[in-house]
Amino acid sequence: MNKMKIKKNNKLSIIFIIGLFIILVVIDKLFSMFDPVASLEVFYKNDFEKTWLSHQDNKEEIERIYDKVFFGNSTVIAAYAEEKSISGYVNMGMDYATIKDLLEILEGEFVQITDELVLGINYLTFLDTFDTNPSYIWHKKPWEPYLYFHRDRLHSFITEGIKNVLVRESFVTVKYTDLNKYYYYGVLSDKELNEKIEIHGKKYWSISTSEYQENMVALKYIIDYCNQRGVRLRCVWMPWNPYVDKPVNVLEVEEQVNQILEQAGIEVLNLSNNFSRESFHDLGHLNYATGRNKFMGVIDEWLSQ
């Protein structure tokens, strides 16, 4: 009798374990399918999600297929005014974006590009050790549950909600409806620029080209990807502030990238030396009032070709 009871308990426990596992997997799949963090306005959006959401025609489904894409880091956000462009390129500028990010976006089919891709590049787009935004969806490992991957935003949503309730406000007081990315206003003074130069000098300008190789390999993969799918690929070297000369390692990176692009026969537009200091906010970001307009004057015709 006792043995029978033990056996029954054991059986029930195994059912519990398997049942719990199935429930967790189903819940995770449902969350992943509906992706509330990316689609609901109550959560802060990263630049990639802003690109998604600002191009969705159908409210129910997020648009993932684009004809023409202008990809790059925050320098692309600052420079390319999609709303003023006649070229029809989607601004896929994202803070801290590298070429590896683009490869992951394409391989993971988070976005599909059908016709044309332009890469807005500078040396940081190729830096392997460059910081990244951990909330970008391609950083999610296959074994990471949805709620765990988005824990930072969920945590702040819940804690802020509880704080609101404690002061007798409604649970949600802030909605992130603004899908504009971060723009750069004004021109930094000499002192501020010198401080930036010092920081960049320490952080980036002494790194050897060996720290850029993974992104260069990723560039080759993207060239292959575009060739295989008949996507026209072009590159733009993004503007550099003439207030400071390009450091040696930046020039070396540019040279190596140019070699890859030349070998693959990729069309390149070099705008790195075309802008005066007044067009910049800092060292690489064009300012909203002047630089952005000047950039559009140059780039839009080229993009439309």
């Binding site: 308990n9 054991n10 029930l12 426990s13 195994i14 519990f16």
Partner: peptide, 10 residues
Amino acid sequence: IDGVLIAQSI
């Protein structure tokens, strides 16, 4: 280790 112990632990 049996089902009961694992279930209790979980």
